[in-house]
Simulated assay, not measured.
Amino acid sequence: MTYQFTGKRPNISPDTGEPEYTGETKQLIDYLREKSGARTFDEALSVCAQGKGKLKVTIMNIKEDEGVVWVFDANKKPFWLPKSFLIKR
């Protein structure tokens, strides 16, 4: 994607194996990586659960200014869910 916008390929980080970013983007990615506890994108994906349709969840935390909610399913497994996926009953 970087190549399509800039016409050049990004440098690849020897630590994470992912593209290196600069400026605000680097700060944001570093912050999100630190907050998640994952060193790489692949590590983060390995702990993500595949979503299922019509899954009943309990909302644990919802913030008005964010597009996601913190929920847990019937197995008490917590995860983030986009607000747009909620069907209110």
Rank of each mutant, 00 (worst) to 15 (best):
Y3E: 15
Y3W: 15
Y3F: 13
Q4E: 14
Q4V: 13
Q4I: 12
F5A: 14
F5L: 13
T6H: 08
G7R: 07
G7P: 05
K8L: 08
K8C: 14
K8G: 12
P10Q: 09
P10W: 06
N11F: 09
N11K: 13
I12A: 05
I12G: 06
S13C: 14
P14F: 11
P14H: 11
P14G: 10
D15F: 14
D15I: 10
T16R: 02
G17I: 05
E18G: 00
E18H: 00
P19I: 00
P19Q: 03
E20F: 04
Y21L: 06
T22F: 09
T22N: 12
T22H: 13
T22S: 09
T22W: 08
G23R: 03
E24R: 02
E24W: 01
T25E: 04
T25F: 03
T25K: 05
T25V: 07
T25M: 05
Q27Y: 01
L28D: 09
L28P: 11
L28Y: 10
I29N: 03
I29P: 01
D30M: 01
D30R: 00
D30P: 02
Y31F: 15
Y31L: 15
Y31C: 05
L32F: 06
R33F: 08
E34I: 10
E34F: 15
E34L: 15
E34R: 09
K35A: 14
S36N: 05
S36F: 00
G37P: 01
G37E: 01
G37H: 00
G37K: 03
A38W: 02
R39D: 04
R39V: 01
R39N: 04
T40D: 03
D42W: 08
D42T: 08
E43A: 04
E43R: 02
E43G: 01
A44Y: 07
A44R: 03
A44C: 10
A44N: 09
L45K: 10
L45P: 05
L45F: 11
L45A: 09
S46A: 00
V47I: 13
C48Q: 11
C48K: 15
A49K: 10
A49Q: 10
A49S: 13
G51W: 07
G51F: 08
G51M: 08
K52T: 08
K52N: 12
G53Q: 10
G53K: 15
G53F: 15
G53C: 14
G53V: 13
K54L: 10
L55V: 11
L55E: 12
L55G: 09
